[in-house]
Design a protein around this nucleic acid. Structure first.
Lengths: 134, 134
DNA sequence: TTACTGTTTTGTAATGATTACAAATTCAGT
DNA sequence: ACTGAATTTGTAATCATTACAAAACAGTAA
């Protein structure tokens, strides 16, 4: 997706597409590696030396509230962020810490969800050792 | 489960059943409310004024490593702990913050898990509004 | 252009959970 | 009681995240 499209998406969700927000959102779109705030900050500050960590935090909050990205809380130490909002699960390797996606359809998950609660989001987090570390 | 049984369980898992560890484990067994370290500490320090928060942290680590309790990372701010190690999912109310259990059998979850990864633990976290807050 | 207004960004300081660490305590075995 | 290992305790450090206020920016009207 190019800058114009990203801009339009942000605007459609009531977020003013500033330089910084576009940069963060574009980074997440093109790096589907579940980066942390600090990873994104370190990458973008090279181009925008004036960028502030706070701006990255604020942007993550705005994008999350708008439903454009998700927070992945699989790591007890840091929040990870994911621009992939289609249905999928997450796997975290306990050796190398890498977070992987795996496919998962909402139709197979929905029957498992609890009755009587209005579920707005669900996440499936799995831990173990990835093929690369075995 | 009484003190003697709890003691035996700890010993079977290679954990020396000290006063403090027993107190923490007994608290988790009898309070299935997914308490945080601080909640447990505040409750137990009334009986054991010398109790240290560090001891509670250390005990949580030991019990987790032994597989006697699980960490619930559904709350981005704090870790919650759960003595229920039978299969179940978690629901967190975004209004009141309460974490609920809901039943879930391993047999229904297993087919959803990714191939090629050796999954050692899985968690299903759901968010929304609980019946009490609606 | 200039002044005005609301929004966004920035940098620093505060917060708060968690960990590191070393001294004090407990405890088993001699 | 004495020794040595394990455990607990309290304090200090770490580090992700948030709060906050000043500076920068964008748009609009005169």
């Amino acid at each position: 997706m190019n800058k114009e499209n990203l801009s339009a998406v942000l605007r459609q969700h009531g977020i003013c597409p500033t330089q910084q927000r576009l940069a963060v959102y574009a980074y997440l779109q093109s790096h589907r590696t579940h980066p942390t705030v600090d990873t994104v900050y370190q990458a973008l500050v090279k181009e925008q030396p004036s960028l502030s960590r706070t701006t990255v935090y604020n942007t993550m909050r705005a994008l999350t509230d708008a439903g454009l990205i998700r927070v992945v809380t699989i790591d007890p130490d840091e929040q990870h962020f994911d621009a992939g909002i289609e249905d999928h699960g997450h796997f975290r390797c306990s050796r190398c810490g890498t977070v992987y996606d795996f496919p998962l359809s909402a139709d197979t998950v929905r029957p498992l969800l609890p009755n009587g609660f209005s579920v707005t989001t669900w996440d499936i987090y799995t831990n173990g050792v990835c093929p690369h570390c075995q």
